[in-house]
Design a protein around this nucleic acid. Sequence first.
DNA 1: TTGTTGATTTCGCAA
DNA 2: TTGCGAAGTCAACAA
Lengths: 219, 219
Amino acid sequence: MRLVIARCSVDYAGRLNAHLPSALRLLIVKADGSVLVHSDGGSYKPLNWMSPPCKLAVTPGRWVVTGKAGETLTVELEEIISDSSFELGTDPGLVKDGVESHLQELLAAQLTVLGDGWRLVRREFPTPIGPVDLMCRDAGGVSVAIEVKRRGEIDGVEQLTRYLELLNRDPLLAPVQGVFAAQEIKPQARVLATDRGIRCVTLDYELMRGADDASLRLF
Amino acid sequence: MRLVIARCSVDYAGRLNAHLPSALRLLIVKADGSVLVHSDGGSYKPLNWMSPPCKLAVTPGRWVVTGKAGETLTVELEEIISDSSFELGTDPGLVKDGVESHLQELLAAQLTVLGDGWRLVRREFPTPIGPVDLMCRDAGGVSVAIEVKRRGEIDGVEQLTRYLELLNRDPLLAPVQGVFAAQEIKPQARVLATDRGIRCVTLDYELMRGADDASLRLF
DNA sequence: TTGTTGATTTCGCAA
DNA sequence: TTGCGAAGTCAACAA
């Protein structure tokens, strides 16, 4: 990894064109040849960058990075303040806990959140257009397809609608009800879901995780 | 901006929990207090990070960064290889060209691309499920809702279909026709749109920008 | 290889 | 401030 602090201007030409006027910035060249241009603010996103795979051509005062699809990042170096390189080696990688799949697990184990007497048919119930997160039957034996999201937006409602349309063609399952379950449901998504007869349920992750821990402690 | 190369392990606790085992990494502390943990590969996204606004508490061998919502990033420093700081100043920022909003502007100013006698009712025409990019009336006074995309895919057709369904419930507007306009329209999107009676129009960005420049030169 | 979906998404615009 | 849609989205996983 090479770190350069330099006064530079940058141009990108690819899907769009973008230009950065001259200023002091941090340039990072990673082991795979990818280049990041960072300012001293903003978020984790660089001002400009080139993703791997790409090729870096260095000439005095100018770097030209060319990507797989022919897009180019051109860095004009005007003044180099600092230039250093380090061998970091490969990274063991990130371990995550608490994403959608976890939410799905918890809900599958706590169907009483949705109603008494519900039972799980299966998780990741397969359909020709993709898997339904949870397939259940309610106390009356009616099929219910559940879409689980961390944040419920319109796309998720569309997704569930497509599943329901398909599932309702199967006489062994029909009629199939829909439940849209998320930690947070956007107003527009709620309007669309309600308009289509889909029930919306807000999930409390901390509460569900707590209930899960409590049930584990009983054994 | 402070750059540290160090052997470290990192823990994040917020919306989710994430852990990074010990390894050599680049740590960036920006002027606004935000922290980025980068490995020597991957993309421009850090392995772990804390976005501003946040507060950094430094003790020997340990950094604790606390975010606005109480989430924390904890870095355990085991061995520091390099540690340097730089004053970069504020960045003039990025200039972009070629994104959807620009395409929408150009089309609004050049409705003749779609047909003679068309007039613009308004851009970003509001509906309960989101704004329609362009609302127009054709030469015969018939309402037309236009969805503008850089790349036309199925999602865009679905979006326009939702708008049309809603708009056609309004007796003051109905019947409302649909136009799907994009620089590039995927075959599947074209098939779906055509099947639903939506007209597809491919936009030539360079040509439209040229026409725009030409019209400006007349004044 | 191609497509789909999730993300600590981030970013920008408009109400 | 808040909400919503786009992004040079990226990245993981399945077909």
